[in-house]
């Protein structure tokens, strides 16, 4: 059986698919074409690459030179708990070689090796620097957590706000969350507990279920199992009541149509 010919506007709809401006029916149509016509998949890849290439439009601006050392110091301090396997010795060493930030190589010269075993004194200073950097970062994290907590408390104290308690489904039975919807400024704030972070190409999406199809109400991806996220609501329906709130796992690049697993839902 041969496939029916593509309509004249198929490339326009593909562009709409990349730009995320299609209706659910149009998006479904495009996805059907993707399975039927190889040229549609090729064109979609080209349009997605074109969209992504817009990042290269601005004239390149070099970051401040000191950002390099700061970034590498932060990476090293963050890497300490990750990079020390159970079998490693007591030293905060990473297998092979390690550099203190000021000794990271520039782009052109060959990297200078810095062997921990041969330079105990340097190790001591480096370990101190790492510990200090880690402590500073931890301090920053705690300050951030405090600000988030204050934001949550302020949200709960606003009488006009709508509060939802969400429980995990079979997909994430241990997860729970408190959702605060502020209809005045059209924002949502969610405090999630035991909801695992997703890969970068995935997101949790929030949906309001009134008396029709689910309405897309935004998305988030917690950085840790317990986290707070806040965003602007994309649709006024999300701030109306009463609605049931649902959370699904979706691919970030997908159009705003619920297709993934239902992981949480609000309690009635």
């Amino acid at each position: 059986m041969t496939s029916p010919p593509l309509p004249d506007n198929w490339r326009s709809l593909l562009a709409g698919y990349v730009l995320d401006d299609l209706t659910a029916e149009e998006a479904a149509q495009v996805e059907q074409w993707l399975e039927q016509y190889p040229e549609v998949a090729t064109e979609l890849a080209a349009l997605q690459a074109t969209w992504g290439s817009l990042a290269l439009g601005p004239t390149l601006v070099a970051p401040p030179p000191d950002l390099r050392d700061r970034t590498l110091a932060a990476a090293l301090s963050a890497a300490v708990p990750v990079a020390v396997p159970a079998a490693a010795g007591p030293e905060p060493a990473i297998a092979g070689e390690i550099l203190v930030p000021s000794q990271f190589p520039n782009a052109a010269p060959a990297p200078r090796r810095f062997l921990w075993g041969q330079l105990g004194l340097a190790l001591g200073w480096a370990a101190t620097a790492l510990a200090l950097a880690f402590a500073l970062q931890e301090n920053h994290r705690l300050r951030l957590a405090l600000r988030q907590t204050e934001t949550v408390v302020a949200s709960f104290s606003q009488p006009a706000n709508r509060l939802y308690t969400l429980a995990g489904t079979e997909a994430e039975p241990q997860a729970n969350a408190r959702l605060v919807v502020n209809p005045a400024d059209q924002t949502a704030l969610i405090v999630t507990t035991d909801l695992p972070p997703l890969a970068d190409d995935q997101v949790y999406r929030l949906w309001a279920l009134a008396d029709s199809d689910p309405v897309y109400c935004g998305e988030f991806n917690p950085a840790t199992a317990e986290d707070t996220n806040q965003w602007a609501l994309p649709d006024a329906v999300c701030g109306t009541a009463p609605v049931q709130m649902l959370i699904t796992t979706e691919r970030a690049a997908d159009p705003p149509v619920p297709a993934g697993d239902l992981v949480m839902q609000s309690q009635s």
């Binding site: 390099r68 070689e97 550099l99 990297p111």
Partner: peptide
């Protein structure tokens, strides 16, 4: 675990 590689990647892509 070779952290010099991160420095090189930073030099290539930080701008």
């Amino acid at each position: 675990g070779d952290t010099t590689a991160l420095a090189t990647l930073y030099d290539r892509y930080s701008s």
